[in-house]
Amino acid sequence: CHSECLGNCSQPDDPTKCVACRNFYLDGRCVETCPPPYYHFQDWRCVNFSFCQDLHHKCKNSRRQGCHQYVIHNNKCIPECPSGYTMNSSNLLCTPCLGPCPKVCHLLEGEKTIDSVTSAQELRGCTVINGSLIINIRGGNNLAAELEANLGLIEEISGYLKIRRSYALVSLSFFRKLRLIRGETLEIGNYSFYALDNQNLRQLWDWSKHNLTITQGKLFFHYNPKLCLSEIHKMEEVSGTKGRQERNDIALKTNGDQASCENELLKFSYIRTSFDKILLRWEPYWPPDFRDLLGFMLFYKEAPYQNVTEFDGQDACGSNSWTVVDIDPPLRSNDPKSQNHPGWLMRGLKPWTQYAIFVKTLVTFSDERRTYGAKSDIIYVQTDATNPSVPLDPISVSNSSSQIILKWKPPSDPNGNITHYLVFWERQAEDSELFELDYCLKGLKLPSRTWSPPFESEDSQKHNQSEYEDSAGECCSCPKTDSQILKELEESSFRKTFEDYLHNVVFVPRKT
């Protein structure tokens, strides 16, 4: 048989008469490798580009789960590009990614509803959504962080984005990388972005840091009482949809009607710091009717980097990364020049730590249904340095008659930039024990000054392991946590139920 035959053949030295091919099969003959313009397919066939392209389009058009959109890589027609490569849609070739590779997620039936953290986790790592997304989240724990972890990498949506009755959302900033909504599939009414009845939605994105392009379709905003109209108009300008909307697409009466839409800028007039305090004062603000001013709200939190936005980490279910302080308005003076500047002394802060701070007014709604208010920009203030805590785990070892090696770990709280350490030492008198000992005694162990690591005695271990207080009263049991108490109650309830079950099964009433 021919060298490319495997198993047997019907005619000697003829690659077209093989029972099976050793390498690849091409047009009725066995070959060692697939010549151009053919590609290896499933490690035994040679196919042309049209064959591989037909497989790709067949799966793409069917949208069946589990099928493969075949691509070409290293002269092979394979189910998908290997790690580190992405497909070129024009020629199906796998090309190296520039940075992290995109991950295209194809949605069944063309859309997916995100109504819980669990459903959001199914899209973790996706960068391109081939379909439409509907966000409908009523509640949950730590929602802002969970949504950002699972949806934060999405850069492109081919269909539309719909935010509907998501009472738990305060902001859409968890879509931190969303840059493009194509609108290839539109919501009824030709809408590519749809926001309806979101009672706590206050911000779409921080438009000073976020760009969003909507290729096709219109915007729809109705019944978002805490979303200011200025935020919607800003989205029109940034996304390129200005002029597409009709009169009733953006409701003037049901958007922002319960919001404090600040239209003035508060400026800080005085800032002073110490290692654990920050004193702030800002310019006074009074609405047209000074009785509408209820006070100020001061927001602050630790910020290692200057990239904080107002609604980071917030949701309507209680999660809030900001510390909020309510401040009463100052006494009002008739003389504008003698107006008191409101302020606040922030206490209990960490030394040498940068804080993000902003302040906003708290006002009631005027009778004319106009909203007044003022808010400052987010500023960054760093507390002063102070003395560091003591170095940890000092170790001293003498390696000769004239040297001592000293080692330690950095302090747990540096409280500033540590530039150097101060080492103090003092000579001590020799131990009298060394002169009084009889060095001729056998088995004498000389006193040693070398360091030995501390260890816990058996008594201390027994005390720590004991669940009861000892007789001397030195140790006591740790208080039980809520989960331990709940577990004990469940076990007790189970024992009672099981005992009742045994009584009912074992003891049967005697027939009379």
Rank of each mutant, 00 (worst) to 15 (best):
K103N: 03
C105G: 01
H106G: 12
H106F: 12
H106D: 14
L108C: 03
L108R: 11
L108T: 08
G110L: 13
T113E: 12
T113M: 15
T113L: 10
I114P: 00
I114Q: 00
D115H: 09
D115M: 03
D115E: 15
V117Y: 06
T118V: 05
A120R: 02
A120N: 01
L123N: 02
R124I: 14
G125V: 13
C126F: 01
C126G: 00
T127H: 09
V128L: 15
N130P: 15
N130Y: 04
L133G: 00
I135R: 11
N136K: 04
N136W: 10
I137R: 00
R138H: 03
R138Q: 12
N141H: 06
A145G: 09
A145T: 07
E146Y: 13
L147T: 06
E148I: 09
E148P: 04
N150H: 05
N150A: 04
I154Q: 00
E155S: 04
S158T: 13
G159V: 01
G159W: 02
Y160S: 06
K162P: 00
R165V: 04
Y167S: 03
Y167C: 02
L169E: 03
V170K: 06
S171Q: 11
S171R: 05
S171F: 14
S173P: 03
F174I: 14
F174P: 12
F174E: 01
R176K: 10
R176I: 07
K177V: 09
R179Y: 13
R179C: 14
E184S: 10
E184A: 14
E184F: 12
E187G: 06
E187T: 04
I188P: 10
S192H: 00
F193M: 14
F193R: 00
Y194C: 11
Y194N: 15
A195S: 06
D197L: 05
N198T: 02
Q199P: 05
L201Y: 00
L204P: 03
W205K: 06
W207H: 13
S208G: 13
N211M: 10
L212R: 00
I214E: 00
T215L: 04
T215F: 07
G217C: 04
G217L: 01
K218V: 13
K218A: 05
F220W: 07
Y223Q: 07
K226R: 12
K226P: 02
K226A: 09
L227W: 00
L229K: 10
S230Q: 01
E231S: 12
H233A: 02
H233M: 05
K234M: 00
M235V: 05
E237A: 05
V238G: 15
V238S: 11
S239D: 04
S239W: 07
T241M: 14
T241Q: 06
R244K: 14
Q245V: 07
E246S: 08
R247T: 07
D249G: 11
D249Y: 05
A251M: 09
L252W: 12
D257F: 03
A259W: 14
S260W: 05
S260Q: 08
N263F: 14
L265G: 14
K267T: 08
F268R: 00
F268T: 04
R272W: 05
S274K: 12
S274F: 13
D276G: 14
K277S: 04
I278R: 00
L280Y: 01
R281S: 13
R281I: 10
E283F: 14
Y285P: 01
W286A: 10
W286Y: 07
P288I: 13
R291C: 01
L294H: 10
L294P: 02
G295D: 14
M297D: 13
L298W: 02
L298K: 00
L298N: 00
F299C: 02
F299T: 11
Y300T: 14
K301S: 09
A303K: 00
P304I: 13
D312K: 02
G313S: 12
Q314L: 09
Q314P: 02
D315R: 04
A316V: 12
S319Y: 09
W322H: 10
V325K: 04
I327Y: 14
D328L: 10
L331Q: 09
S333N: 02
N334L: 11
N334R: 12
N334V: 06
D335I: 14
K337L: 09
S338K: 15
Q339R: 10
N340R: 03
N340P: 08
H341W: 13
H341M: 09
P342C: 15
P342Y: 06
L345C: 10
M346H: 09
M346I: 07
G348Y: 02
L349A: 13
L349K: 02
L349N: 01
P351M: 11
W352P: 00
Q354G: 08
Y355K: 01
A356R: 03
I357R: 00
I357P: 01
F358C: 02
V359T: 09
K360Q: 15
T361E: 03
T361G: 04
L362R: 15
T364K: 00
E368I: 12
R369C: 04
S376W: 01
S376M: 04
S376T: 07
D377R: 13
Y380E: 02
Y380Q: 05
Q382L: 08
T383Y: 00
D384Q: 04
A385S: 13
A385R: 09
T386V: 08
N387S: 05
V390D: 04
P391A: 15
D393H: 15
V397P: 03
S398G: 05
N399D: 15
S402W: 09
Q403K: 11
Q403V: 09
I405N: 06
L406P: 02
L406N: 07
K407G: 02
